Amino acid sequence: MWMHSEAVRLELSSEAMCGGIIFDEMAIHEDLQECKNGDVIQLVGFEDVGHEAKVCNVIKDGKTEKK
Rank of each mutant, 00 (worst) to 15 (best):
E11R: 14
I28W: 02
F46W: 07
C56D: 10
H29Q: 07
C18G: 03
A16K: 15
L43S: 04
K60D: 11
V55W: 06
E25I: 12
N57F: 12
D39I: 02
F46C: 08
Q33R: 08
I59H: 02
E15Q: 07
V8A: 10
A16S: 14
K66A: 13
M17S: 06
H51S: 08
A27P: 00
H51D: 12
K60A: 12
V55N: 06
K54F: 12
S5T: 13
D48T: 00
C56F: 15
D31N: 05
Q42L: 09
A27T: 05
F23W: 14
V49P: 11
I28P: 00
K36N: 06
F46M: 12
M26V: 09
L32M: 09
K63D: 15
H4P: 02
I21M: 07
V40L: 08
H29G: 00
G62V: 01
G38T: 13
I28G: 00
V49I: 08
K66E: 07
L12C: 13
R9Y: 03
G62H: 07
G20Q: 03
C56K: 11
W2A: 13
I21D: 15
M26L: 10
G45M: 01
M3T: 06
D48L: 04
N57G: 13
W2D: 14
K63H: 07
I59C: 09
A16D: 11
Q33W: 05
R9L: 07
R9K: 11
E6S: 06
V49K: 12
D39F: 15
N37T: 04
E6L: 04
G38P: 13
D61Y: 06
K66S: 12
S14Q: 09
K66L: 10
I59P: 01
I28F: 08
N37Q: 08
V8R: 14
Q42E: 13
S14A: 13
W2L: 10
V49Q: 15
A53K: 09
Q42P: 00
D61S: 10
F46S: 13
D48N: 14
D39S: 03
G50M: 07
K60F: 07
I41M: 04
L10P: 03
N57Y: 11
D39W: 13
D39Y: 09
V55Y: 08
K66T: 14
G38W: 01
D24L: 12
G50L: 06
V49S: 13
E52D: 09
G62F: 08
D24W: 06
L12H: 04
F46V: 09
H29P: 02
A7G: 07
L10M: 06
A27K: 00
G38V: 05
C35G: 02
E11L: 01
H29W: 00
E52Y: 12
K36A: 11
I41S: 07
M17T: 03
K36Q: 15
A7H: 01
V44G: 00
R9A: 04
K63W: 03
D24P: 04
V8L: 14
K63F: 04
V58M: 08
R9M: 07
G20Y: 03
T64S: 06
D39V: 06
I59S: 03
R9I: 03
N57D: 14
C18A: 13
V40M: 07
M17G: 10
E15T: 03
A27N: 10
L12A: 02
H29D: 01
D39L: 02
C35R: 12
L10A: 11
W2M: 13
D48G: 03
K63G: 05
E25N: 05
L43G: 05
V40W: 01
M1R: 11
D24S: 09
N37G: 03
E6V: 04
K67P: 10
